[in-house]
């Protein structure tokens, strides 16, 4: 600190005469201090090394940890790919194939709960006066092309279901303007699901049927009305 450039101008910070002598008196008069110092000098006679090395069991612990870390990363890194989220993923197969088995009912259940249940209710009975039921409704269990058409374009205006007239708007899940743009697969899943739930026992709607109907109505953009549909597909 001797080359300190500042050392020449701080006269205001010199120690005042009063406070500092008692420090030393206190220190020298303190028996505890003397006694402890003696004790320290005794202790210093023991030979000591430059520093105490790491205890051996710690080295083993650290080595074990590093070894575990290597194994863990090798097994759970998903090859460092940005598109692998599943820790069970194994290069070249495993896990993902079995998970990919297609179940339209499982998929339909999920789609229904997220998109349909708010109006048609989880039990498929709808809300009297507002939203028509799906359970045992002929519009659901009847002609499959009619059902797919509703799903792909929606439905506007009054509709009579099992003796009650409802007047609302069903949104479109197809690829027209304002539609949700679901794939053939999802339409197939949701149609199959509602045709086979709540006691409905109609056969499934295949993906091919959905594709065919989609192609057939490609030119149409706006929602259907009930009379229009009944004209194309009269009620059984």
């Amino acid at each position: 600190m001797s080359d300190h450039p500042n050392s020449d101008h701080k006269p205001d910070r010199l120690p005042n005469e009063r406070g500092f002598d008692p420090h030393e008196e206190a220190a020298y008069a303190d028996d505890t201090l003397h006694r402890v110092h003696q004790q320290l000098q005794r202790e210093k006679e023991e030979p000591t090394e430059g520093f105490s090395p790491i205890p051996i069991f710690l080295l083993f612990l650290f080595g074990g940890l590093v070894f575990w870390a290597g194994i863990y990363m090798a097994n759970n890194s998903g090859e460092f790919r940005p598109d692998i989220y599943n820790p069970e993923w194994k290069p070249g197969g495993g896990g993902n194939e079995t998970a990919a088995a297609w179940d339209p009912i499982k998929r339909g259940d999920r789609l229904f709960r997220n998109n349909c249940a708010a109006c048609h209710q989880a039990d498929g009975n709808g809300v009297p006066g507002s939203f028509p039921p799906l359970a045992s409704s002929p519009w659901v269990v009847g002609d499959e092309a009619r059902l797919v058409k509703i799903l792909l374009r929606g439905l506007q205006g009054p509709i009579e279901v099992m003796g009650t007239t409802y007047n609302g708007a069903m949104p479109s899940y197809g690829d027209n303007s304002g539609g949700a743009g679901w794939s053939d697969r999802d339409i197939h899943a949701i149609a199959t699901y509602i045709r086979q739930s709540w006691g409905n026992g109609a056969p499934p709607v295949s993906e091919e049927t959905v594709a065919a109907v989609r192609a057939e109505i490609a030119d149409r953009d706006k929602a259907w009305t009930a009379p229009e549909l009944l004209e194309m597909h009269p009620m059984e």
Partner: peptide, 8 residues
């Protein structure tokens, strides 16, 4: 340090 030395 001097004020609070080792051993105290």
């Amino acid at each position: 340090d001097e004020e609070e030395p080792e051993g105290v």
